[in-house]
């Protein structure tokens, strides 16, 4: 008798928990792969391809599948640290094979020299270069991610990567970045 009761009880419990689990798996179903989105969120979106993948999202997918997190030079240490936090792995120094962390730069086309070959336009991953065939091209500075990809294709080498100089609005209270002058003293004789 007691055996039957035990069996029924256990059976009921199994049924209840089974229902709960089944409900939970429907109710809390994970759509897509949020991990890739989260990683993509952290990456700097320069789309430079220095990591060896054709853009930030492909690299995000690769990280989610177990690739190293230290292949993003534009993001630098800060990005690696965030990725390490997210992935629960140890932060490691930037892999030098993929480049070095550098200050922020944007592309600048020396317009006199541009021959209008459109090669840089095709290379730009974010469509930040304007121009048409045989017409001078120019870079939309605000859209440029500084990925460097337009420099190599240029046949006349008229693209420079120019460091972004701080302005009064982008200044972060770093007095070291401020040029210092003095008070010119005129000697009164």
């Amino acid at each position: 008798m007691s055996l039957t009761v035990a069996l029924i009880a256990i059976g009921l419990l199994a049924l209840i928990f089974g229902l709960v689990l089944g409900y939970a798996s429907i109710k809390f179903k994970v759509e897509g792969d949020p991990l890739v989105d989260q990683i993509d969120e952290i990456l700097p979106q320069t789309q430079c391809g220095q990591c060896g993948y054709p853009g930030c999202r492909p690299y995000a997918e690769a990280i989610a599948n177990g690739d190293e997190i230290n292949k993003c030079p534009p993001g630098g240490e800060a990005t690696i640290k965030q990725l390490a936090d997210l992935m629960g792995v140890e932060a490691k120094p930037l892999d030098a094979a993929h480049g070095e962390e550098d200050e922020k730069k944007v592309a600048f086309i020396r317009e006199d020299e541009c021959i209008g070959c459109t090669k840089c336009i095709q290379a730009c991953p974010v469509d930040a270069i304007l121009g048409a065939a045989k017409h001078m091209h120019t870079v939309i500075t605000d859209e440029c991610t500084g990925c460097d990809l337009c420099v190599d294709p240029c046949p006349v080498d008229c693209i420079d990567m120019v460091p972004v100089s701080p302005t009064t609005t982008s200044w972060t209270w770093d007095f070291d970045k401020t040029p210092k002058g003095d008070i010119p003293i005129k000697m009164v004789s």
Binding site: G55, P125, D127, T172
Partner: peptide
């Protein structure tokens, strides 16, 4: 001074985030 640095860094991070978002959109559109 610490607050100012933090504030300007936060603003900068926001800007960067917005830029990254824009770059992503443009990249995807392309």
């Amino acid at each position: 001074h610490y607050y100012r640095q933090a504030k300007s860094s936060i603003r900068q991070q926001r800007d960067e985030k917005a830029r990254a978002e824009k770059a992503r959109e443009r990249f995807e559109a392309r």
